[in-house]
Design a protein around this nucleic acid. Structure first.
Length: 800
RNA sequence: GCGGGUAUGGCGGAAUUGGCAGACGCGCUAGAUUCAGGUUCUAGUGGGGGCAACUUCGUGGAGGUUCAAGUCCUCUUACCCGCACCA
C-alpha cells in the first residue's frame, strides 16, 4: 500500500469527529477511566513539539483503554489567564480577549492535526464567564470558612511586571515570568491559608501512586519540621522573646540570640535600645538588598548587637546578648533564634566573628575548629548530661520546658500561605467589596460571576495598583450588606487559580447550576492517571490538591485526593541539545513536522526518541527511522497471503502483543515501538503474513499511528473503527518457546551455546554442554570444581 | 550545604532486575537499483589482534562480594534537576 499520509490523515480525523468516536459517556455500564494531561497555556508562539510529547503518552494509554472496553474521559482545555497574554496585548494594542481567542484557535488546530483523541465537546477555557464564575465561587467558599485573609506584609514584588508574586513564583529571587530580580515590598495582600492543609497535603501522599521524585519534591516543599517553641525572658522587659528550634536539647549551649532585622520587638522598644541609630542603619541596609543578594552572602555574617536588651537563658539562667542579623528570616519560625554556636554552622561563624562564647553540649567534634552537627553524648547540660540519643534528649527537654512553662513542642513548615492577588487586568476579579461601614464584605453567590469589565486600557498603574482601579463603574458599587456606597476589590487572582480545579469542570463543563453535578463527580473521580511536567509538581499540583481537599472537606467532592496516579514526561530539547526557547531559535513547530512527515510519524517519533520521562534532543534524521517503519508497516498489506504463519512467527507476534501491552502501562513507549520494529523485520524475513495476524498488528499499532491503522483496518475489511476495535490479547503459552539457546560458560566466559528444551533439568543441561565439541577440549584433563545451570539462561562450568 | 537523579558504541537509547552487554533506530562503510534523490534493497558496523575459525579488552574511575556484576556493597569523579542562611 502506498503510504499517503496527506490523504489519509484528514480523512480519518473527519471520520472520528463525525462519529463522535472519543465520546465519554456520563452514564455507562463500562468501567470508567479518566486520563488527564496538563492543559496548555495558549501563548502566542503556538505549540511546540514538547506539548505533543506531553500529550502523546496518555493519548496512547487512552486509546488502549478504549479498545480494552473502558469508558474513557480524555479531555483538553486552556489555562488562558495570565501575564504573557496581557503583556502581549499591551505591546500590540490588541485586547487580551482577542489575543486569547486567537491563540486558542491556533492551539486547537495544531492539536487536531496531530489526531489526538481528546473529547472536544468538553473543552474548558478558564477565562470564560461560565468557568471563572465557579473559580470565584470556590474562593468565596474559602472566605466563608476562614481560609482567606488579608494582611499587610513584606511581599515579593516584581518591579518589571509590577506585580506581587507568591513564594512559589519567585524562586531564587527571580520573577518567574520575566526573570527580573524581585524586591521586598510592604503591601496589603490576600492570602489563602494553605498552611492549614499542610498536614493533609503531606498525609495524602501516602495513599496516591505518584512517581517517587514527585512525592519527594512535594514533601520537601511542604518542609515539615518538628521541634519546640521556647520563650526567653528579656531582663529589661516584661515581654518574652519567642523562638523556634529543632534542637531544644542544646539549650544549655545557647550563648546568644539573633532576631531578624524586621522583628517587631525593635520598633516596640526603641526607647530602651541604646544604639537604635546603629540598628536603624543596619536595617536600612538590609531592606535595600534583594532576597537574592541576601541569600548569596552565606559565608560572611553581618549583624549588630542590641544594646540595652539582654536575654536570659531559661535553663541556665545566664545573661546572653541579642543581635540583629539578616541570616535570620522574619518569614520562618518566629523570626528569632536561639544560637548554639558549638553545634550550628551559621551560629558558629557568627560567634567567631563577634567573639561570643562557644559552649560544647554534644561530644564528638572539635569545636575549636568547626561546629559539630552530629550525634554524641550530652555534656555541660545539667539534667541532660549522659544522654546519647538525640530523640530521648529532645523529648526530655520538651518535657522539662512544658513543666516549667518555658516552652512547648511545635511544628513548622517551609511552605507559606499563598499570596493570592495580582495587580493586573487579565485574571479573575476577586469577589470582595470594601465597605466603609461593614469592612470586607464578600460578593453574594447569586451575583456571580463578577465579570471582568471590558476596557480599552489595562496597563498597570505606576504605583503598583491594579488597572481595574481606574474603572469607576467597576470600582464603585453598593455594599451587599448595608447597601451603602462601597468600593470593589480591584486586584485579580493569580494564574494558578483557574488550573486548581479544571479537572472537576471537565466532568460537567456545561453545568449552569453547580460547578459539576454530584452524580457525575461520583462516577468520574478520581482522575485515574495524570501526566505533566516536573515544573508543576510544587505549584499547580500542591495548589490543586489543596483546593480539592478543601472541596472534599466541604462535602462537595467524593474523594480526598484528586489524582490517583501522577507521572511526568521529559523535555524535548532543541537539535542543539539546549532547552527549546524562542530566543535560541531552536523551537520545532509540530505543524512543520506534520507537513513533511505526517502526524503518525510525529506521534511515533516523540515516543520513540528515548525514555519518556527523560529529556532528549530533537533529531530529524532519527525521525526518518519512524517514517520508514510506518511505510514498511503499510507495505505489509502487500505481503498478505492466506497460508498461515510459521510457529516461530506466531510466537513472535504473541510476544510482541504482550510486550507492547505491558510497556504502555509503564510508559515505556520506546521499547514498545522497538519491539514492533523488530517484529516487522522478522515478518519481512519470512516474506508473508496472514490477514488475521495483520489485523492484530494493526490494532496493536493504532494507539501510536491511528490514521494509518484506520486505513489498513478498512482495507482489511475490519468492522467499525480500528480505534474502537478490541485490544489484541496474547496467549501466554505461545510466548514461550519449546527450546531455548543457552550460553555455556567456562570459568565465567562464554565459549559456546547449546539448544536445550525449555526448563531442561540441570543434569541434562550440563551433560549436553559437556558433550559440545567446543567445550570438550576446554575441560579435557582439568578438574571440574563446580557446575551451575540456571534453567533457560546459562550454564557455567568452573574448572581448574 | 540539603534532597533527588544520571553516567553504557560516533549519536538517541535497550538489557526479562545478578545470567550471552549494545535490542530497536540514527549515522557510518561497501555493493546493487536509479537520469536524479532527504529513494529503495543487500551485507557489515564497540575497541585491539588475526586471511580465518578465533582471541583479547570493554558499561565514568578505584576497590570488593559472587561460579557469574552495567545491575549488589564501599570509596570516588563529573554532570543534571529541585530547595536553600528553614533555625
Amino acid at each position: 500500500m502506498k503510504y499517503d499520509f496527506k490523504q489519509i490523515e484528514p480523512k480519518w480525523q473527519k471520520k472520528w469527529e463525525e462519529d463522535n468516536a472519543f465520546c465519554a459517556e456520563d452514564h455507562s455500564s463500562k468501567p470508567k477511566y479518566y486520563t488527564l494531561v496538563e492543559f496548555p497555556y495558549p501563548s502566542g508562539a503556538g505549540m511546540h513539539v514538547g506539548h505533543i510529547k506531553a500529550y502523546s503518552g496518555l493519548e496512547v494509554v487512552s486509546r488502549k483503554r478504549r479498545m480494552q472496553g473502558y469508558n474513557v474521559l480524555f479531555p483538553i482545555g486552556f489555562d488562558a489567564y495570565g501575564l504573557p497574554t496581557e503583556n502581549y496585548a499591551i505591546k500590540t494594542g490588541m485586547h487580551p480577549r482577542a489575543v486569547t481567542d486567537k491563540n486558542i484557535e491556533k492551539f486547537t488546530s495544531q492539536l487536531k492535526r496531530v489526531g489526538f483523541s481528546f473529547y472536544w465537546s468538553r473543552v474548558v477555557d478558564t477565562t470564560e464567564e461560565d468557568y471563572y464564575r465557579w473559580t470565584q465561587w470556590i474562593f468565596l467558599k474559602m472566605f466563608e470558612k476562614g481560609l482567606v485573609f488579608r494582611d499587610t506584609a513584606l511581599v515579593n514584588y516584581c518591579p518589571s511586571c509590577k506585580v506581587v508574586l507568591s513564594n512559589e513564583d519567585s524562586q531564587g529571587g527571580k520573577c518567574d515570568i520575566c526573570h527580573s530580580d524581585i524586591v521586598q515590598k510592604s503591601k496589603a495582600v490576600w492570602y489563602l491559608r494553605i498552611t492549614e492543609y499542610a498536614d493533609k497535603l503531606l498525609e495524602g501522599l501516602e495513599e496516591v501512586d505518584y512517581l517517587p521524585n514527585v512525592k519527594q519534591q512535594q514533601v520537601n516543599w511542604i518542609g515539615k519540621s518538628t521541634g519546640a517553641f521556647v520563650n526567653f525572658s528579656i531582663k529589661e522587659l516584661d515581654e518574652k522573646l519567642r523562638i523556634y528550634t529543632t534542637r531544644p536539647d542544646t539549650l544549655f549551649g545557647v550563648t546568644f540570640m539573633v532576631i531578624a532585622p524586621e522583628h517587631p520587638i525593635i520598633e516596640a522598644n526603641r526607647d530602651k535600645i541604646k544604639n537604635i541609630d546603629a540598628l536603624d542603619a543596619y536595617r536600612e541596609e538590609c531592606a535595600k538588598k534583594t532576597e537574592f543578594e541576601r541569600t548569596q552572602l552565606v559565608k560572611d555574617k553581618t549583624g549588630v548587637r542590641i544594646e540595652g536588651l539582654t536575654a536570659i537563658n531559661p535553663v541556665s539562667g545566664k545573661e546572653i546578648p541579642i543581635y540583629i542579623s539578616d541570616y535570620v528570616m522574619m518569614g520562618y519560625g518566629t523570626g528569632a533564634i536561639m544560637a548554639v554556636p558549638a553545634h550550628d554552622e551559621r551560629d558558629y561563624a557568627f560567634a567567631k566573628k563577634f567573639g561570643i562564647d562557644i559552649v560544647e553540649v554534644i561530644k564528638g567534634g572539635d569545636i575549636s575548629k568547626e561546629a559539630y552537627a552530629g550525634d554524641g553524648e550530652m555534656v555541660n547540660s545539667d539534667f541532660l548530661n549522659g544522654y546519647t540519643n538525640k530523640k530521648d534528649s529532645i523529648a526530655r527537654m520538651i518535657e522539662y520546658l512544658s513543666e516549667k512553662g518555658i516552652g512547648e513542642m511545635g511544628v513548622q513548615y517551609k511552605m507559606k500561605d499563598w499570596a493570592f492577588n495580582r495587580q493586573r487586568y487579565w485574571g479573575e476579579p476577586i469577589p470582595i467589596v470594601h465597605c466603609p461601614a461593614c469592612g470586607i464584605v464578600p460578593v453574594p453567590y447569586n451575583e456571580l460571576p463578577l465579570k471582568l469589565p471590558t476596557v480599552q486600557h489595562f496597563e498597570p498603574g505606576e504605583g503598583g495598583e491594579s488597572p481595574l482601579a481606574k474603572i469607576d463603574e467597576f470600582v464603585n458599587c453598593k455594599c451587599p450588606k448595608c447597601g451603602g456606597a462601597a468600593k470593589r476589590e480591584t486586584d485579580t487572582m493569580p494564574q494558578w487559580a483557574g488550573s486548581s480545579w479544571y479537572f472537576l469542570r471537565y466532568i460537567d463543563p456545561h453545568n449552569t447550576e453547580v460547578f459539576a453535578d454530584r452524580e457525575k463527580l461520583n462516577y468520574w473521580l478520581p482522575v485515574d492517571w495524570y501526566n505533566g511536567g516536573m515544573e508543576h509538581v510544587t505549584r499547580h499540583m500542591i495548589y490543586s490538591r489543596f483546593w480539592h481537599k478543601f472541596l472534599y472537606d466541604l462535602g462537595e467532592v467524593p474523594v480526598a485526593e484528586p489524582y490517583a496516579k501522577r507521572t511526568a514526561q521529559g523535555l524535548i530539547l532543541g537539535p542543539d541539545g539546549e532547552k527549546m526557547s524562542k530566543s535560541k531559535g531552536n523551537v520545532v513547530d509540530p505543524n512543520d513536522v506534520v507537513d513533511v512527515f505526517g502526524a503518525d510519524v510525529l506521534r511515533t517519533y516523540v515516543l520513540f526518541m528515548g525514555d519518556y520521562g527523560s529529556a532528549a534532543p530533537w533529531n530529524e534524521s532519527s525521525m526518518k527511522g519512524c517514517k520508514r517503519f510506518l511505510e514498511r508497516f503499510a507495505d505489509l498489506f502487500d505481503l498478505v497471503k492466506g497460508e498461515g504463519v510459521t510457529p516461530k512467527l506466531e510466537s513472535a507476534i504473541h510476544k510482541t502483543v504482550k510486550k507492547v501491552s505491558l510497556d504502555i502501562e509503564e510508559l515505556k513507549f520506546n521499547t514498545a515501538i522497538a519491539s514492533m520494529m523488530g517484529l516487522l523485520n522478522e515478518i519481512y524475513d519470512v516474506g508473508s503474513i496472514t490477514k488475521d495476524e495483520l489485523t492484530v498488528l494493526v490494532r496493536l499499532l493504532s494507539p501510536f499511528a491511528p490514521h494509518l491503522c484506520e486505513e489498513l483496518w478498512e482495507m482489511l475489511g475490519g468492522e467499525g473503527l480500528c480505534s474502537l476495535a478490541a485490544w489484541p490479547e496474547w496467549d501466554e503459552a505461545k510466548t514461550v518457546d519449546s527450546t531455548v539457546e543457552v550460553a555455556v560458560q567456562i570459568n565465567g566466559k562464554v565459549r559456546a551455546t547449546v539448544e536445550l528444551p525449555v526448563n531442561c533439568p540441570a543434569a541434562d543441561a550440563i551433560a549436553t554442554a559437556k558433550a559440545n565439541e567446543k567445550i570438550i577440549p576446554l575441560i579435557e584433563g582439568k578438574t571440574v570444581v563446580k557446575e551451575i545451570s540456571i534453567p533457560n539462561k546459562i550454564i557455567n562450568i568452573v574448572v581448574k
